[in-house]
Simulated scan of single mutants.
Amino acid sequence: MRFLTIFKKYPATFWASNVIELFERWAWYGFYMAFALFLVNSKDTGALGFTQAQKGVIMGTGSMLLYFLPIITGAIADKIGYKRILFLSFTIYISGFYMIRSFDSFEMVFLSFIWICVGGAFFKPIISAMISRTTTDETASIGFGIFYMMINIGGFIGPFIAGIILNKSWDYVFYMSMITMSINYLITFFFF
């Protein structure tokens, strides 16, 4: 019973933040798991046909920025405001997913992936901060447990669905990520 009592202590922003995290992870992991294949598979399949070395440069550089930049983007969010930065993050993500599917040169795909990772770098510190701000000493452990459960659920759903729709077209994976990320605009607008 105490467990259910703690659930009632979380504000709406806590639950909204968790749902936003779920959809962001769904979009990201659905894209990311297919992206490595998209980079190196044959052009006959609609993929890009890059080399393994090119894939390594793209994914390695982007991932490094994704985990380094939150130091800077978190400070920017504190100055500008979380809601504005969330909208910016979603816009960068969606436009990046679209750009990657639109380009076929190494340079433009590289820049598009960097762009997506910048969107992720804006997102990461804000959503973690929202979980922290909406929990107390009494509710923090369960709150972060729920948060990581949302990450894992999104991380499962995204690649699972991407694997199913990938057989139809690479485009469907990118569209799935764009649509899933777009849902976060509505949640952010109404609950933040």
Rank of each mutant, 00 (worst) to 15 (best):
Y29L: 15
Y29V: 10
Y29A: 10
Y29H: 08
Y29I: 08
G30V: 06
F31R: 10
F31Q: 01
Y32D: 02
Y32A: 13
M33I: 14
M33H: 12
M33D: 06
F35W: 04
F35V: 03
F35K: 00
F35A: 07
A36S: 15
A36H: 01
L37I: 11
L37K: 12
L37F: 11
F38A: 03
L39M: 09
L39F: 02
L39D: 09
L39R: 05
V40Q: 14
V40Y: 13
V40W: 09
N41C: 08
N41K: 12
N41M: 14
N41A: 11
S42T: 14
S42D: 15
K43R: 15
K43H: 08
K43Q: 14
D44V: 05
D44M: 05
T45L: 12
T45A: 05
G46L: 05
G46R: 09
G46P: 07
A47C: 13
A47P: 08
L48A: 10
L48T: 05
G49I: 06
G49L: 08
G49D: 10
G49P: 11
F50P: 04
T51A: 04
T51S: 15
Q52K: 13
A53V: 10
A53E: 15
Q54H: 01
Q54I: 00
Q54N: 06
K55A: 09
K55V: 00
K55T: 03
K55P: 00
G56A: 11
G56M: 03
V57H: 01
V57L: 14
V57A: 02
V57T: 13
V57W: 06
I58D: 01
M59Q: 13
M59H: 04
M59A: 12
M59C: 03
M59E: 07
G60D: 06
G60Y: 06
T61A: 14
T61S: 12
T61D: 04
